[in-house]
Design a protein around this nucleic acid. Sequence first.
DNA 1: CGTCGACTTGACTAAAATCAAACCCGGTGG
DNA 2: CCACCGGGTTTGATTTTAGTCAAGTCGACG
Lengths: 261, 261
Amino acid sequence: MNDPIPLDLVRLRRSCAECSLQQLCLPAGIEGDDLRRLEDVVQRRRPLEAGDRLFRVGDALQSVFVASEGTIKTVGISEAGEEHVLGFHLPGELFGLDAIGTGYHRCEAIALGKARVCELPFNELAVVAAQLPSLQRQLLRVMGQSSDRDQDHLDVLTRRQASERIALFLQGLSQRYRRIGQPGDEFQLPMSREEIARHLGLAVETVSRSFSRLHEEGVIAVRGRWVHIIDVAGLNAAASGCEVEAKRVEVVRAEKARSPR
Amino acid sequence: MNDPIPLDLVRLRRSCAECSLQQLCLPAGIEGDDLRRLEDVVQRRRPLEAGDRLFRVGDALQSVFVASEGTIKTVGISEAGEEHVLGFHLPGELFGLDAIGTGYHRCEAIALGKARVCELPFNELAVVAAQLPSLQRQLLRVMGQSSDRDQDHLDVLTRRQASERIALFLQGLSQRYRRIGQPGDEFQLPMSREEIARHLGLAVETVSRSFSRLHEEGVIAVRGRWVHIIDVAGLNAAASGCEVEAKRVEVVRAEKARSPR
DNA sequence: CGTCGACTTGACTAAAATCAAACCCGGTGG
DNA sequence: CCACCGGGTTTGATTTTAGTCAAGTCGACG
């Protein structure tokens, strides 16, 4: 609605050197002059509001992005017009690489809530990377990490049990939150059930039911978008498909004890 | 069993400049001296036999690879010990990038039959790429294409209907065969049903049944690993989930007409 | 307080997994 | 030459699971 308040402007100008994500992001391991040259490439952006788009399908590659606050989702659109969520990008995570192969974006990037990103014009980045071996190495590494997240997603999607997918999804989020210094056992989901469903290839109802079941089993506590991971071992078990059965039997038994008949 | 015959040795030595895949592979758009410098990095390999492994989970990143003849599969292994097939790599396709993020391979690469690959020691490649902007650009592009294939795979896995997954899988293979100058409408599958199943997140039986159904519908002809795509439009329809219904109804009707009662 | 959207829950249905049994085909050895 | 394996593959019957449709419930917000 109104212009960014002064504080925002200050943060907007904040350099990579001062950024709390520095060690997780592209600048990791880059120092001195090299870091300053990288900073010249990085454009900091005005805050994004929920639903704001950074790029759309078919847009020519201009920049790649790093989330710096909030969460961005990337969404692919099938010919039938169905959307599926390719990834959720937390602070420090690079995205927008999908355009590198063809030169055009294959998906679109949308802010899930108030968010902020750093934009890196790709051509400039490539030029500077060619000049700075440390940056080239780091760029490749960060690109690789981005592929690793895609791989993890793939891993999740090959699981047949909905409960496994949900458990793995939560585990993954948990780890990623810890990585950025936030509690991994208690957090607010930045995305809706619908978005989780379209990320995991499930129906919304199935997502909801899986959450409920994990809750009943005492593995997690959920209330709306608030999640608390109570039993890490239990979540691991659920993620690998085994022992969940035993757990459930236990719960059912407890239930029967409470209300015989 | 016995040593490679002389012909093989000749092919082994063949340079990128003489390679039929040149325009599809890393050297595309690289010429003269630059090409010679790239060739210095590329190591050509002895032929691989079915089941030969190029790297295993946990191996440190040494090289990335390009298939040059035959097909290589990459296989990820879940904690539970289940294998799932991450990708099939046809001639001209780069793989082994999975180690770039962490420095260690997350999957293993196995030849599906007699095959041949070009090996590119990653560090050398990175050094040369830093010196040759054309190679750096091309390397990024080829890496992007590799991600694009992963993305396509992901696309396939989010489809709920088994028939859609199979149809998309066949479409994808068809395109990729055409790309390397082989007929896209008639080919031998280099992989088993089991491997297809583990690639698509389905049971073997489901894969088999889906093939059979597409066959009955007259969309494709299958006999063992031999596949002939008869009705491209039909395959497209099956891939996007719609109209298959109509097709099937038709077939059922025809069936009834043939054997009333 | 009412309304709207997001989420949950239940009943039913459709689809794929599973279990089990044949089948096909290339290779082996009698 | 043919009988007999044994793998990969197909097919059938049954069970399990998630999808679908339809009601609710919850919670934020005007």
